[in-house]
Nucleic acid binder design. Structure first.
Lengths: 195, 195
DNA sequence: TTAGTATTAGACTTTTTAGTCTAGTGAAAG
DNA sequence: CTTTCACTAGACTAAAAAGTCTAATACTAA
């Protein structure tokens, strides 16, 4: 399928540019140059800069999120251990540690000023929140965690905290810092474990 | 001193525009219109858009931060209670809950791409981190908290988490959500209390 | 091969951007 | 009163922005 090649190149370049510079500071011309695609092609596939970036969010950013954040019970692990493993994997993910969470960065920039972006980004937020919450709930159901754990609230807290840590200035961010800070989340979760 | 009035109006308008739209999406012309100040005056006081915003950060945003985040031991309170009070006060601060932390939002947008902004914002980060850490340290010294509390790491975690919570999409943010999520930070701190 | 559609190409337009320039105004000091 | 200088005023410029347009080209199916 060579037919989609220009479209795919555009989405790839758009992800990189927006991840680096943010939405407002990204220019269509720079995307075209990076993708080596002429303007006519871009406006053939996408109606506007905004439409291009919205498509990029769905087709590049969301899948990338599923790669970064993997909240499922790992084989032969408790729920607690699964979170521990996931955090450890995140700390080893260079782009994530260095550039922060692409979804959250876009949310910080655009959610307050654009309801189309807000709606789309919140869809993914809800999905992730639900994923984490269900995993915590599973831990409660399987008597790993105490019933007093407010799994919905804690899932939201985990998301906020992790995004907060990841999206600090690159000068403040490193695998070690991520491990050190995320440990407090694990410790807090550990409070609810039943021995 | 009427002499400084145009300058002050510019800084006020710049804070509002940048807090709302971010740096890249803020235009000098809109600032001038909002402040009702002609262009000549602006370029008399400030050499460029960037210089204007850097001045705004120092003269408006930083003082605002000291207002929002008040990490000192409150009179007649334990350190734990002081944090609890500060969080409660933050949850009642409308602009903070609705628009997020202005420093963090700017850090997310600019730290990765502009070292002048990064340097300035990190200065404030370090100051706040130190303030929180010293307060925790005081709690350890006064036997309120166990020595095992890594006060530097926990102070960093608190900052990241609070910023993460505050700067979520406005659709996800509310006083209740802030209280519910920040409670986990207090619970975690509570683990280290000596009774 | 050919007709028809999808894609490419990039010059062009319009709007907006940051920033410049020069003439003027007003207050304060001599 | 007058000189001086900080400040005002906004028209102007140049660059960059998003988006349009038309003609050429490459596929694809008949």
């Amino acid at each position: 399928m060579k037919k989609q090649s220009a479209r795919q190149l555009l989405l790839d370049a758009t992800f990189e540019e927006v991840y680096t510079y943010g939405y407002a500071a990204t220019s269509v011309d720079r995307i075209l140059k990076k993708a080596s695609v002429p303007k006519g092609s871009m406006y053939h596939y996408f109606g506007s800069k905004k439409a291009l970036v919205l498509a990029m969010v769905e087709e590049r950013l969301f899948p990338k999120m599923d790669e970064f954040f993997h909240f499922e019970k790992h084989k032969g692990c408790t729920v607690y251990e699964s979170f521990r493993n996931t955090f450890a994997a995140m700390s080893r993910n260079r782009p994530l540690i260095e550039h922060g969470c692409p979804l959250y960065r876009l949310m910080v920039e655009l959610s307050p000023v654009d309801k189309d972006f807000d709606k789309l980004l919140i869809e993914k937020y809800n999905q992730m929140h639900k994923g984490i919450a269900m995993l915590l709930k599973q831990g409660i159901d399987e008597k790993e965690f105490d019933e007093s754990l407010d799994y919905l609230a804690f899932a939201a807290f985990m998301l906020s905290s992790v995004w907060g840590i990841l999206s600090l200035s690159p000068s403040l961010s490193s695998p070690k810092v991520f491990i050190s800070q995320s440990r407090f989340l694990l410790d807090e979760l550990n409070r609810y474990r039943i021995y």
